[in-house]
């Protein structure tokens, strides 16, 4: 593009949005440009000498580009960059900050399943899986990625509004000495101490303990 005149303002706020290591590059259109702007994207592994173009994100008019596949090795760190084109002019490349998939991803809440007896409820929690290229690819639980992963569990007695909090490392919890025939609502969050990562709390799963025998 050496022959093009690069006086177009650059794309703005170029950054990765990452959930469970699904890493998508996002940006905003250059200031003052309406429709018709096209973009191309490149990325590099930090410490390695070359920038690599992303063919699927060449001459695109959308303002995002999925780089999950290219940034799936979470033992590496990355930069990505975007360039804009409009009516024969172009912008400079605009880069992200250094992206570390391990620390810069957001984690979804755990899956929660609940069962009950008359005086207890059993809770089974499942951590989300790391993003993967295809369903056939082997699943990697985020538990394997973050050895220090824990669960914070909230249990609410719907009748008395009394709430308990538990912090557990394994994925099952039995809450004993409950009242028969009473509704309890369970919600759980993932907590990684270091690097510090907290998911949101899951939506509530309510169950009623069996009536007294």
């Amino acid at each position: 593009s050496g022959e093009l005149n690069c006086s177009l303002p650059s794309p703005r706020n170029v950054h990765f949005e990452s959930i469970n290591m699904k890493n998508v590059l996002h940006w905003s259109a250059p200031e003052g440009t309406g429709n018709g702007v096209l973009y191309k994207v490149k990325y590099t592994v930090y410490g390695v000498g070359k920038w690599i173009r992303k063919p699927e994100c060449r001459n695109i008019n959308r303002t995002w580009c999925d780089l999950s596949s290219e940034t799936s090795d979470y033992e590496e760190q990355y930069y990505a960059s975007v360039k804009a084109f409009l009516n024969g002019t172009c912008s400079d490349w605009m880069e992200t900050t250094r992206f570390n998939p391990l620390t810069d991803t957001k984690i979804d809440p755990p899956m929660v399943s609940v069962s009950s007896t008359d005086r207890s409820i059993s809770i089974i929690l499942t951590a989300p899986e790391k993003w993967k290229r295809s369903p056939e690819e082997e699943s990697i639980s985020l538990l394997q990625v973050y050895p220090g992963l824990q669960y914070n569990v909230s249990v609410l007695n719907k009748k008395t509004k009394k709430r308990w909090f538990f912090s557990i490392s394994n994925n099952t919890l039995v809450v004993p000495w409950l009242e028969p025939g009473t509704a309890y609502c369970v919600s759980a969050q993932i907590h990684v101490t270091t690097p510090l990562l907290d998911s949101d709390f899951s939506k509530e799963h309510c169950i009623t303990t069996l009536k007294d025998k």
């Binding site: 590099t44 410490g47 390695v48 590496e76 930069y79 900050t97 250094r98 510090l196």
Partner: peptide, 29 residues
């Protein structure tokens, strides 16, 4: 590790922005 991590996270963007070299890593390559 939690304290060191928190300390580094607080200054990471500032420190990394002072390093313009993408093609060389001290620790990882």
């Amino acid at each position: 590790m939690t304290e060191v991590r928190a300390g580094f996270t607080a200054i990471k963007a500032n420190i990394q922005s002072r390093d313009p070299i993408r093609t060389l890593s001290i620790l990882s390559h």
